[in-house]
């Protein structure tokens, strides 16, 4: 049960039930669609850029608690950050999930560190990273749907 509690922490469940920054961003100037064909999870990330900075971000989607909470917490973490800062955070987040993150990285991630519990569930790593891959695609102005496969 401990591993399970590490995965389904209160913060994660809270974000999955009441996702923040959820919905369409009417004046978005960047957007991308992410899809996990394995489980049918889908995320759309909308961005409004102010120069190199993410002025506003929203997402829409449906999927498991891990994917929805990850998307919700990502939007909170990257709002106001520059493109490079957001990409750097994605890199650290990925390191956290693949178990290659050092203690400094974990502290830099702040509350995103709760996703460390996903490490023990390799098939669920894709759920946690879907929103981030989609953000990456939106920042790169890639028009196509990204897939975690």
């Amino acid at each position: 049960m401990n591993d399970l509690r590490d995965l389904y922490q209160e913060v994660l469940l809270d974000h999955s039930k009441r996702p923040r920054n959820f919905g369409v961003l009417a004046d978005a100037d960047h957007q991308a669609v992410g899809h996990n064909p394995l489980c049918g999870d889908k995320v759309v990330v909308y961005l409004r850029m102010d120069g190199d900075r993410i002025a506003d971000i929203r997402f829409q989607g449906q999927g498991c608690a891990v994917s929805q909470a990850s998307a919700s917490m990502m939007t909170e973490s990257v709002k106001g950050k520059t493109r490079a800062e957001a990409e750097a955070l994605f890199k650290r987040f990925h390191e956290l999930l693949t178990g290659t993150a050092g203690p400094e990285t974990v502290s830099e991630l702040g509350k995103l560190a709760i996703f460390a519990g996903v490490r023990k569930y390799p098939v669920r790593v894709k759920c946690a990273t879907l929103a981030w891959h989609t953000l990456h695609a939106a920042l790169a102005r890639k028009a196509e749907t990204v897939s975690t496969e």
């Binding site: 389904y8 049918g40 669920r124 759920c127």
Partner: peptide, 21 residues
């Protein structure tokens, strides 16, 4: 509760089911 989460939690109980489309 998304089926994928059901699948993970059931696996914790040693129960194998399918979750998905």
């Amino acid at each position: 509760i998304h089926p994928h989460d059901i699948g993970t939690i059931l696996d914790h109980e040693g129960i194998a089911i399918r979750a998905g489309h």
